[in-house]
């Protein structure tokens, strides 16, 4: 009984600390508030049900990043490819609130930039720039050697710079 109560208390702390960060992480991949919230909610519940030691912050953070990332990948795989016209996109933005409008614009802007590079490089750039993970953490999450992560990141930025310069 006491163990369960302690676990609930620890989970509440984690939710207070990480909820918004996890939501941003999911939203910038999914692009929908409700779906991003559902993903975060499911991941938090899975963490509670798992036998993870919640007192270890590093392990918990790693678990959450991996779980949310995998959930987003699953979500995107399940979604049918829909080509949205400019009018429909504008209507969706109008339907959402002002804060959501800003978020959605940012999501689209980042996505537009990352579409210029291969997905494996885009993922590293996303994790480093938008999610704020360092290269060691990215290497751990993606299960890659750290030098590979660094080189992929450099190539990705070069490609974006070239493409951005050409666009301009």
């Amino acid at each position: 009984m006491k163990q369960a109560e302690d676990r609930v208390r620890e989970m509440e702390e984690i939710i207070n600390l990480k909820q918004d960060w996890l939501f941003r992480f999911a939203y910038l991949r999914v692009g929908h508030r409700e779906d991003a919230e559902d993903i975060v909610q499911d991941v938090l519940l899975k963490l509670f049900q798992s036998k993870e030691n919640l007192s270890s912050i590093d392990k918990t953070e790693h678990y959450l990043i991996c779980a949310v990332r995998n959930a987003c990948i699953d979500y995107l795989r399940r979604q049918p490819p829909v080509m949205m016209t400019g009018l429909e996109g504008a209507a969706q933005i109008v339907a959402e609130g002002d804060a959501d409008k800003e978020m959605h614009e940012e999501y689209e802007c980042i996505n537009r930039l990352l579409q210029m590079i291969p997905p494996e490089q885009a993922e590293i750039v996303r994790l480093h720039c938008t999610d704020g993970l360092n290269f060691r953490q990215i290497a751990k999450v993606l299960e890659l050697p750290e030098p590979t992560v660094k080189s992929r990141y450099r190539y990705a930025i070069d490609k974006i710079r070239k493409a951005y310069g050409e666009d301009k």
Partner: peptide
Amino acid sequence: LKPKAVYHA
């Protein structure tokens, strides 16, 4: 690439 908007669940 860095997000500037405030993300609140």
